[in-house]
Design a protein around this nucleic acid. Structure first.
Lengths: 148, 148
DNA sequence: ATAGTTGTAATCGAATCGGTTACAACTATA
DNA sequence: TATAGTTGTAACCGATTCGATTACAACTAT
C-alpha cells in the first residue's frame, strides 16, 4: 500500500508557504489551487503543520506563515506531522501460532530487520531540509524564467 | 498506510518451508496453522513465491519445497514477490497546478528525495538473506528447547 | 476409484483514502 | 457595529484495498 498523498500535499503546501508567503496571502483556497485539491484537504494539512509548530495559521482573517527556519525542518518532520509515520510500517499477521517453532519466534527473528529497513527510509527523510528543497526550487524557477 | 501483511505472511511461510520442510509435508493447511490465517491466504502467498521461482508447489498431491538456496533469497525478493513493492511508494497528488511556480516544479524537486528514501528501505531488505534468518531462527529454537 | 490438495474465482465486511458539502467561530475592515 | 472572507471541524460519499471465507474444478498419489 502506498503512503498517503497527505505527505506530498503537506510538503507542497509548506514549500508554497515558504516560497510565496512573502508575496501572497497563503489562504487554504490559494494553496489548494496550486496543489489542485479541495481546500478542506489543505486546511487539514495546515492543521497538521500547525500542530507540529511548523507554521502558524490565522483564524478568521486567514493566511499561513512559517514559524520555523527552513533549515530546521526536514521532510521527516512533515512526514510525521502529516500523520504518515507508523510505529510499524510493516503490517504483521495477528497471532502466529505459539505452538509452532516458527510461529513462536517469527517476531523475534523478523522484527529487527523490518525496523532497520523502516529506519533507513526515515533517516533519509531526515537528511533533507526545506532549506535545501527551497534552494532547488528557486533554481528551477529561475532557470525556467530565463529560458522562456 | 501500512505495508500489507502479505509480506510478513510470505516470509513466515518461506521460513517454515526452509526449516520444517524436511520434516513435514508443507501443505497450505499446515502452513496456515503456523501463520494462523486462512489456508487460501497461504495458497496465494505460495503462488507468489512460486511465480518468483523461489519455491515449487506440487499440485494435486500437495506440498511446497524450496527451489533456491537460502543464501540467494533476500527479504527484498520476497517483498517484491508478494507484490508489496511499488514503483513509487509515496503517493502524489495527481495534477499540481502547472501555472504555479511551485506546482510546476514540485515533482522535479521532490521526486528524487522520495526515490532515495524508498531505495534506502529496499536496500536494507536486500541485505538480509534467508540463510541469516534461518540461522537466527534455529538459534532461538535451540535456546528455547534447552531452557525449557 | 478415492481422498487430499492446489489453483482460482467470487463475495464479504472493515478500514482508509481523498473529495465534498455544510456551517459555526473568528477576525479584519469598512 | 455590520459585513465579508477565512478557518476549524463534523459529516457523508464513492472508490479502493485489505484479509477472511466459501466454493469448486483440476490434479495426483495411493
Amino acid at each position: 500500500m502506498k503512503i498517503s498523498s497527505r505527505f506530498a500535499v503537506a510538503v507542497h503546501a509548506l514549500l508554497a508557504i515558504y516560497v510565496l508567503g512573502s508575496e501572497y496571502k497563503m489562504t487554504s483556497d490559494f494553496i489548494a489551487s496550486s496543489v489542485n485539491v479541495n481546500p478542506v484537504v489543505i486546511r487539514r494539512a495546515l492543521l497538521s503543520l500547525k500542530a507540529a509548530g511548523i507554521i502558524g495559521v490565522k483564524a478568521g482573517s486567514g493566511g499561513a506563515m512559517p514559524l520555523m527556519n527552513a533549515e530546521n525542518v526536514t521532510l521527516y518532520d512533515v512526514y510525521a506531522a502529516a500523520g504518515c509515520r507508523e510505529d510499524n510500517m510493516f503490517n504483521f499477521h495477528d497471532e502466529p501460532n505459539p505452538n509452532c517453532p516458527v510461529g513462536k519466534n517469527i517476531h523475534s527473528v523478523l522484527d529487527p530487520y523490518l525496523e532497520t529497513a523502516q529506519a533507513a527510509m526515515e533517516n533519509e527523510l531526515k537528511k533533507t531540509t526545506f532549506a535545501e528543497l527551497i534552494k532547488n526550487l528557486d533554481l528551477l524557477i529561475l532557470k525556467l524564467c530565463c529560458n522562456s
